[in-house]
Amino acid sequence: MNALAARRRHPAAIFLLLLLGLILTGGAYAALAPKPAIAAEASAGQVKEGQELFKTNCATCHGANALGTNVGPNLAGVGAAAVDFQMGTGRMPMAEPGVQAPRGKEVQFSEEQIAAIGAFVASLAPGPAVPAEEYTTGAGGDPGKGGEIFRTNCSMCHNSAGAGGALTRGKYAPKLTGVEGKHIYEALLTGPQSMPVFNDDNISPESKNDLIAYLKAMEAEGNPGGMALGSLGPVPEGLVAWVFGLGVLVGAAYWLGQKGA
């Protein structure tokens, strides 16, 4: 009987065993748990600059302390990712009031300024950070798997071609073609406007990368059949058949009818 076996009934053994188990589980979780993909840490100077920009450009609606007013929501806890998405796609600052902020024709601020405002908003309360490039370009992703995720989670609003779709009361899911991978990732992470949040527990960063790979692969494939008619399915197809198809063929019939024997 060796020393370890002799002390197995020692009163402290059970606690030691528990401790060991906890350390192992905790260590394994820390090593294997899905890690949020974070691009960069913010500096104190950036936060200060962001606050200044915020006061002059965003405070009218979101309040001086970003805690919201009756025309703009509270931004504590939305994180830098939300700021990067909303401002990086030109949705914010909003050009005019409406049911939903449309994608802007041009981005109003430089990348540094957006990052600064993001740092300020992130300093208010913890929230999702701007994702690292590793998972946002679709590089190395599996488009097939991404397509399955897309059809299960996204196509009911965004349309299977990513052409966009209608929601209630004038709101809509925008089209996904021509959107940067980073912004797709951030939208998933923060759930802007009517969109639900798909956090990293729900769809892992790798799966998000697959999803972006699918959207990029679809864009790369183009439309092998010819003009896509806005990728809106049978409605524009029927319109073409009635207006263009019947128009041309009736024109041909008329021409034949005018021709004598």
Binding site: G147, E148, F150, R151, T152, S155, M156, C157, H158, N159, S160, A161, A163, G164, G165, A166, A173, M218, E221, N223, P224, G225, G226, M227, A228, L229, S231, L232, G233, P234, V235, E237, G238, L239, V240, A241, W242, F244, G245
Partner: peptide, 30 residues
Amino acid sequence: LSALVQINAIWVYGPYDTSAVTAGAQPDWY
């Protein structure tokens, strides 16, 4: 017309799966 204008792009819709659905799901015009 068929050479120039794409119709019923089945590859865009993806395979049918009872859990999935697409926005803009219309039947053919008739």
